[in-house]
């Protein structure tokens, strides 16, 4: 992870050049409508994220694109090919990392990479894949002996053995410590630098903000909004957020009336006041609390985040 590749913020795709094209896709499991009319397009070289809580339909959507499930309705094209009719052809050109790392426990890292490589017409040298994912020193270790982070990296490595044009990553950093997560982000950026298109799911806001050129926010099987991080935030929040703990805070109706406040969002234990005039709002807030003999706990001023966007869209916090 020596030289970080500067993420190129890719433009929105034009209709003709899209690498992935999903149109009005639906999928039900029994009575549960897992995916309920999802449409989006991913441009060449883009890192596109599906962001949402567990059960939002992200994984099902992604696995239908990978050809693992048949949609009940709708169209899916990958690299200009229809997934229903050209599944095998598409599978040669994509790399897939599944949410739960699927491994043969008794095989070594190198054996597993060679095994998967043998399934494809086109292969990347195993040494190169090992080096990319920093698994070189583990090449002769049986996979059952790997740590969670190593396993996750191997799972990503398996998605790269065929030098794929499109890479699918399903919650690639779940369960990793912050350092390992940063390391994997570098790997994903490098993939992009090599010209690959990446579709990933995540329920980590900071991951989506750090990695994804564009995002689709999903909940209950639907896409609520699509755009770049800046788009998504800017579309709803020109303001900044003044955030503090709800404990000892003045009543909400008083807070709403403070100078500059455009809206108030209350979460479990926090209150966020959105304002176009931070000094005026903070001044008024302090005046109010001083009169009450308290002070705002953990006071913080910040730009609105994807978290705020999700909260605004769904009325719920996105937490894992």
């Amino acid at each position: 992870m020596s030289q970080p590749v500067a993420a190129v913020r890719a433009p929105r795709p034009d209709a003709a050049g899209a690498v992935i094209r999903v149109g009005e896709v639906r999928k039900a499991y029994g009575a549960v409508q897992a995916v309920d009319g999802v449409s989006f397009e991913v441009a060449p070289g883009e890192i596109f994220g599906l962001l949402g809580p567990n059960g939002a339909g992200k994984t099902t959507t992604m696995e239908m694109i990978e050809g693992l499930h048949q949609p009940d309705a709708g169209t899916i094209e990958v690299l200009g090919l229809d997934v229903r009719r050209n599944a095998s052809q598409i599978k040669h050109r994509i790399g897939v990392q599944l949410q739960t790392a699927a491994l043969y426990p008794q095989l070594t890292v190198e054996e597993l990479l060679r095994l998967f490589g043998s399934f494809y017409g086109r292969q990347r040298p195993v040494d190169q894949v090992l080096e990319d994912l920093e698994l070189g020193e583990k090449r002769t270790a049986q996979t059952k002996t790997l740590s969670g982070g190593q396993r996750q990296r191997l799972s990503v490595a398996l998605a790269l053995v065929n030098d794929p044009e499109v890479v699918f990553l399903d919650e690639p950093t779940t369960g990793l410590d912050p350092a390992a997560r940063q390391g994997l982000w570098q790997v994903v950026r490098r993939m992009q630098g090599e010209g690959r298109t990446i579709l990933m799911t995540t329920h980590y806001m900071e991951e989506a903000e750090a990695l994804c050129d564009r995002l689709a926010i999903m909940d209950h099987g639907r896409i609520l909004e699509i755009g770049t991080v800046d788009d998504l935030i800017g579309r709803r929040f020109q303001e900044r957020g003044v955030r503090f703990l709800r404990r000892d805070a003045p009543p909400e109706d008083q807070l709403r009336g403070l100078a500059g406040v455009t809206r108030l969002v209350a979460e479990d234990d926090e209150v966020v006041l959105f304002t176009r005039d931070v000094p005026a709002t903070v001044g008024a807030l302090l005046e109010l609390t001083t009169r009450a003999g308290t002070e705002p706990a953990d006071l913080m001023i910040r730009r609105a985040s994807l978290e705020d966007v999700f909260l605004d869209l769904t009325g719920r916090a996105l937490r894992d």
Binding site: L68, K91, H92, V96, L98, T100, A102, L103, F119, Y120
Partner: peptide, 10 residues
């Protein structure tokens, strides 16, 4: 999910 993973290959 080894079968599923294999299924994602050609």
């Amino acid at each position: 999910l080894i079968l599923k993973r294999l299924n994602a290959t050609p």
